[in-house]
Design a protein around this nucleic acid. Structure first.
Length: 752
DNA sequence: CGAACTACTTAGTATTGCGGAT
DNA sequence: ATCCGCAATACTAAGTAGTTCG
């Protein structure tokens, strides 16, 4: 164990040198601090923002407690901790070995992998089919309009000012969309009805065109100059390209930071010729303004492009997507997620990244490894180039990979979230989380016991697990010192990230967390814990420096080994998935009523979603236009209120008229009309008010991340069915695609 | 064992583009 | 027809976790 201790100390020691600075900057001028990432904000701005953010923090905490109740006051009265353990999942079980109905392969899906000669036709045929599909659908659309009764009805109701043509066009477009959607649905690969491959095999056939490379750099026009020390300097191609990267970012705050500037300058000089390097020795003497202006003009010009020009661009892009954006995987055409090679540029890390500003080099085909099926058509490298390697590894899911020069890590070209490969994994993830649900009570009991263990390692593991479970913290892998921003997760927490309060705000044993997590998002939380946990934390922190590890005997590897011994497949992150999903389900049950109107139902859904986002600490910077748009909405609401008042008084008047003149049918009709107007007004007002509430509550909370990565989609699908809410109110197109498996298999009775 | 390497998920932000308002 | 605000999408960094290697 001596070795471990040494490691811990060494790490702590190194960390110490750096973290106080960071901590100082976090705390500077504030006790509560900014709820969001602060490291990227300049000091002045931050101080200014402090009072505001402190308030925001308070509001946030209140919200947490009041609206969502995701925080427990006394240990385990949390909603998540009152689960019925016994109930077994009933629906949509993940059964890798034998899955329900088998789907027969259709005739046009050959069983064998195509040879090189037949492979390309496969791709091309699919492309052609799509091309031909368009005119076809257009024809169908016209028929579709005739069938649709809606347009006529609307026209009758509003006999009207708007041009018929545009209306028809709109309807046509709508019908086309519906048609397309139906077609897509029919073509969808229902992989979840098929058998799974044997262990480790990800595909049997994989064919693609290779990644798409960004265009080569072109020299600047002659009239755009770079100046050094006031004199024009014509840079060589390489140095000029890098100079332009910097010039493009001049408006950005990055370029004022020393770390960024130094890294940039160092890497830029590496790209220079000898003469350039001799001449250009001081970044402060560089004048990029002309390059910067040229860039800005280009951006403007692009914005100002005519419709036709934009259409041409769009079509060109579409062509690239059609050609490079898809692959054939086991006879199905699947969308690739990131088929474009990342263009060169300056590295923009998040937070105080020590490598910010470094040059991210251009990737050549010679750097790229291609992965595809042996007998498939091997993608052609760009003319005059060759691939680094072509391999045929069907135990991995990537189509191409390269090593990035800044961090030395691997980048992969992989499939879209809607693909089988991603979907299957996702499904499995939620099934593991559901398995955790059925044994979580036992695990909780065990770690409560383990907290009393004589073994230090076991105790630390138990406390860490308590945090991971209760607070949904990330695991906290070790990171290489000085290579990345200083962020932590549970296992890598340091003493300086916790403050213990025997008594705080009328609560005993409160732990105050304050650290930067993934992406340098600040985690700030005051949590009452059990006496036992509290005592242990004191013990763990005893005789340690602020920069020392809190859990000096623990790391994620040890923790995960323990977890997987409790339940195969269980790791630290499963707790996040499980707690997120169970919270959503529970909140939906508590918040939503069948008798609510549609807007209220949606608000409830969003609130449940938000409870999860708060739990997982998914934050965002409030949009720049937030206050403005909020004010706009408010004035709209006010306007509508007035309108409603007016409509109401008009209705009253009309009613009086009717009473006065007994039953005049004309006047009756007027009353009816006014009644309707009032109703409409009320509905719209209501809708807007709900929207305002929702937006306000979303100010600095991001819902997307949890929706996409943590919430079992089947919970949402079942909720929609139960509440009679159309699914597309909850999921947009790409989300419906990603979760197609869940949409298809889930009934109203699904329970996570 | 632990460091290095690999593969894959999760994350926030920048950019794009669409639909409604003007 | 154009502008504006926001939702959707694109992008790529930053995590987790498993495997390999020394």
């Amino acid at each position: 164990m001596g070795g471990e201790k040494n490691v811990g100390q060494a790490k702590g020691g190194k960390a110490k040198a750096k973290t106080p600075r960071q901590r100082l900057s976090d705390k500077e001028g504030s006790s509560g601090g900014d709820a969001l990432r602060k490291s990227t904000k300049p000091n002045k701005e931050r101080t200014k923002a402090t009072a505001k953010s402190q308030r925001a923090e308070k509001v946030k905490v209140q919200k947490k407690v009041k609206a969502f109740k995701t925080e427990s006051v006394e240990s385990f009265d949390d909603v998540r901790f009152n689960l019925a353990v016994k109930e077994e999942p009933e629906d949509g079980d993940f059964v890798p070995e034998k899955r329900g109905k088998k789907r027969k392969r259709s005739e046009d899906e050959p069983m064998e992998g195509p040879s090189c000669s037949s492979a390309t036709p496969t791709l091309n045929r699919k492309l052609k089919e799509k091309d031909e599909a368009d005119p076809r659908t257009e024809k169908n659309t016209k028929e579709g309009i005739k069938k649709e009764k809606k347009p006529k009805k609307e026209e009758a109701e509003h006999p009207v000012t708007t041009k018929k043509k545009s209306k028809e066009e709109i309807e046509a477009a709508k019908a086309l969309k519906i048609k397309k959607r139906e077609e897509e649905e029919q073509q969808r690969w229902r992989w979840w009805e098929e058998d799974k491959y044997e262990d480790g095999v990800k595909w049997k056939l994989l064919e693609h065109r290779g990644p798409f490379f960004p265009p080569e750099y072109q020299h600047l026009p002659d009239n755009v100059n770079f100046y050094y020390n006031g004199k024009v300097v014509k840079l060589g191609l390489a140095a000029e390209e890098v100079a332009l990267f910097f010039a493009q970012m001049l408006d950005h705050e990055y370029t004022t930071k020393d770390v960024f500037r130094n890294n940039f300058f160092k890497d830029w000089r590496k790209e220079m010729t000898l003469e350039e390097r001799v001449l250009i020795s001081d970044l402060n003497k560089c004048d990029f303004r002309e390059l910067h202006n040229m860039h800005k003009e280009k951006v403007e010009a692009r914005k100002a492009m005519s419709k036709e020009e934009k259409l041409v661009m769009k079509e060109a892009n579409q062509k690239i997507v059609e050609e490079y954006g898809f692959c054939i995987l086991d006879h199905h055409r699947e969308r690739i997620g990131n088929f474009k090679i990342e263009p060169p540029g300056l590295f923009r890390g998040r937070g105080e990244h020590p490598k910010q500003g470094m040059l991210k080099k251009r990737i050549q085909p010679e750097d790229v490894i291609i992965n595809c099926e042996k007998k498939s058509c091997i993608p052609e490298p760009p003319a005059g180039h060759h691939w680094k390697e072509v391999r045929h590894d069907n135990t991995v899911t990537w189509l191409a990979s390269w090593t990035e020069n800044v961090q030395g890590s691997c980048k992969y070209v992989m499939l879209n979230p809607s693909s089988k490969l991603k979907g299957e994994k996702d499904w499995e993830k939620y099934e593991v989380a559901r398995r955790l649900k059925s044994c979580v009570n036992g695990i909780r009991q065990q770690y409560q016991q383990d907290i009393k263990s004589k073994q230090m390692e076991t105790r630390q593991r138990a406390v860490a697990l308590y945090f991971i479970d209760k607070l949904a913290l990330r695991a906290g892998n070790e990171k290489e010192e000085g290579e990345t921003a200083d962020t932590v997760g549970c296992c890598s927490l340091r003493v300086e990230h916790l403050t213990l309060h025997d008594l705080l705000e009328d609560k005993d044993c409160v732990v105050e967390f304050d650290f930067l997590g993934k992406d340098c998002i600040r985690y700030y939380n005051k949590v009452p814990v059990t006496k036992r946990v509290f005592k242990n934390l004191k013990l763990f922190m005893k005789n340690k420096e602020p920069g020392d590890d809190l859990f000096d005997r623990l790391n994620t590897c040890l923790l995960n080994k323990h977890l997987s011994s409790l339940l195969p497949g269980l790791t630290a992150k499963v707790f996040r998935t499980f707690n997120a999903s169970i919270t959503l389900q529970e909140q939906l049950r508590q918040l939503s009523n069948m008798t609510d109107n549609p807007a209220e139902k949606l608000l409830s859904y969003n609130r449940a979603n938000r409870a999860v986002a708060v739990l997982c600490n998914h934050q965002r910077v409030p949009p720049k236009t937030f206050d403005q748009s909020m004010a706009n909405l408010q004035s709209k609401i006010d306007g509508r209120r007035e309108q409603l008042a007016l409509a109401k008084s008009e209705l009253k008047l009309a009613k009086k008229e009717v009473q006065a003149h007994s039953s005049d049918s004309k006047l009756q009709a007027v009353v009816e009309r006014k009644k309707k107007a009032v109703q409409r007004c009320e509905e719209q007002l209501m809708k807007m008010e709900v929207q305002a509430t929702n937006r306000e509550e979303n100010k600095q909370i991001a819902l997307g991340t949890s929706k996409l990565n943590y919430l079992d989609p089947r919970i949402s699908v079942a909720w929609c069915k139960n509440m009679e809410v159309p699914l597309d109110k909850i999921y947009n197109k790409s989300q419906r695609d990603k979760f197609a498996w869940a949409v298809d298999m889930t009934g109203a009775d699904f329970i996570f």
